[in-house]
Design a protein around this nucleic acid. Structure first.
Length: 466
RNA sequence: GGUCCCUUCGUCUAGCGGUCUAGGACACCGGCCUUUCACGUCGGUAACAUGGGUUCGAUUCCCAUAGGGAUCACCA
């Protein structure tokens, strides 16, 4: 066990999105690699916006991705006593003060400042206020440093310096007594012994004020590593406009968790020319040194490619179980039909997602084949009928309905009729699958089995032009 | 607007002063394979934002400019 302690601290105001998942992944990978501790903390201090459903969704997504944590989940909503005590401590030490300005007043002043070209920061009205009017609601503000500079060495971005003049006295406790993010994140990271904070770089601007807070509270300041944002194709922050952003939406779309993990890891991190990484590979090879500094564009095409790779190389039994779920979702009963693993085998190389695989598997379980009219018109012609009938009788006579047996049945027909497979197979494919695109007819025949195949082939006779 | 971050093919990236006529991957285009669709395979198009420095020598270091992103809440 090393001293490294990292955490993922999502706010339960929605599902786990792609960006959050990558942050969680990086934390997880580093913790595992360094044999450190990975902590999960739910940041639900905003009671109005936090929901149990969101928390559940986040937990579920973490589990689906295989990101297990060592401690937690901790809920900030259960730690208000701690925060109140820390606020009190700051108040007593004169490092924080009560502010009686109302939200409306502040808003008005902000606008005025902006209009006159000034900075929209708190003007310090209550900074030196001594009286404590009874019955008047107040917030607690942190007395921030007004001069000097605050700097830190980011593990990804390098040295970053802020002029303290840019910082204002931020609110650390609302008028309803609940604490605010920038305050609790400091208290919790310190109290939980976090040694390295890995988070999105949208938090860079929060870092200096948090450092000041660590110091005011007498805590050691942890290290920081700010990972770049993930952008949409138009280079703006990834959002719903760009398609699915929820991790679990990808499961529904037929993606495998290892594909998403692999993709997310490679978005912003690299290891030479390698592209394919299992979770074990990532744990072995991940380092913050190879995380890039610039924001990356989410590329669904590449995710698709990785997913196709994992489907191609995946375990059939597992894929069969996953495929069944997608088939059932389409209202298809897989009980009266070919073995699912055999079906997976024929579709593995031609499906990029489980949804595509399910689409491609539908014909196997159809009670009746409804053939594409265009395909029928093109291949089920009077001219093709003799060959088709020859195949039908050869397959009827076949007593070894395996790939090899089927192949030799076709070979027999080909030598007897002089027709090439290109003349024989298409019509068979159409009556068997209803379409011109499918796995190899030998495979389809074998997978369907003799009984079902012959039934379809006989029914198919009706499709031929007279 | 202020502040902060970022800047190699369309996209993800390799590159950590000379090995760069810049490598890999996705996508795209073409050949091959082939019973369809795919897979596979071979090949191709395609990038160091711009301008100054530093240096014997810059894709690599520094500074500007431009562009992009983030952030400026009693959200996190």
């Amino acid at each position: 066990m090393s001293q490294l302690r990292v955490r993922f601290a999502p706010s339960p105001t929605g599902y786990l999105h792609i960006g959050g998942a990558r942050t969680a992944l990086f934390n997880y990978l580093l913790a595992r690699k360094e044999k450190g501790t990975f902590i999960l903390r739910i940041e639900d201090t905003d009671v109005a916006r936090s929901t149990q459903e969101s928390t559940d969704a986040i937990l579920q997504a973490m589990e689906w991705l295989g990101l297990s944590y060592d401690e937690g989940p901790f809920y900030q909503s259960e730690r208000f006593d701690l925060y109140r005590a820390k606020v009190q401590q700051l108040l007593e030490q004169g490092k924080a003060y009560r502010c009686y300005c109302t939200a409306e007043e502040l808003e008005a002043r902000r606008e005025a400042a902006l209009k006159s070209g000034g900075k929209p920061k708190y003007d310090g009205t209550c900074r030196e206020r001594r009286d404590q009017p009874a019955g008047v609601p107040f917030v607690v503000r942190f007395r921030s440093a007004q001069e000097g500079e605050t700097c830190f060495h980011d593990r990804i971005k390098g040295p970053i310096v802020f002029n303290n003049e840019e910082l204002d006295d931020l609110i650390i406790q609302r008028s309803d007594g609940t604490p605010i993010y920038n305050f609790v994140v400091v208290v919790d990271d310190a109290e939980m012994g976090i040694t390295l904070v890995i988070r999105g770089d949208d938090h860079i601007n929060n870092t200096p004020r948090q450092i000041l807070l660590y110091q005011a509270l007498g805590y050691a300041v942890p290290e920081f590593a700010h990972v770049p944002m993930i952008l949409g194709a138009d280079k703006t922050r990834l959002s719903k406009r760009h398609g699915a952003t929820s991790v679990m939406a990808y499961e529904e779309l037929g993606f495998l968790p290892e594909a998403l993990v692999n993709y997310l890891a490679r978005l912003g991190w690299s290891c030479g020319d390698e592209e394919i990484f299992s979770m074990a590979d990532l744990i072995e090879k991940f380092t913050l040194d190879n995380v890039g500094k610039s924001a990356g564009v989410f590329n669904p095409e590449k995710l698709l490619w990785l997913n196709a790779h994992y489907i191609k190389t995946g375990d059939r039994q597992r894929l069969a179980a996953l495929l069944q779920r997608h088939l059932v979702a389409k209202g298809i009963d897989t009980n009266n039909g070919p073995n699912l693993e055999a079906v997976v085998k024929t579709l593995q190389e031609r499906a990029r997602t489980l949804v595509e695989m399910a689409d491609g598997a539908v014909f196997y379980y159809a009670k009746e084949i409804i053939a594409d009219p265009e395909a029928v018109a093109k291949w089920c012609t009077a001219e093709a009928r003799p060959g088709y009938e020859a195949v039908l009788s050869a397959l009827t006579a076949c007593n070894d309905f395996t790939h090899a047996g089927i192949e030799s049945a076709f070979a027999g027909v080909m030598s007897a009729t002089g027709l090439k497979l290109g003349k024989l197979a298409p019509a068979v494919r159409v009556t068997l699958t209803g379409s011109t695109a499918s796995p190899s007819v030998y495979e389809v025949l074998e997978t369907l089995g003799q009984e079902r195949s012959l039934e379809r082939l006989r029914n198919g006779l009706k499709l031929f032009a007279a």
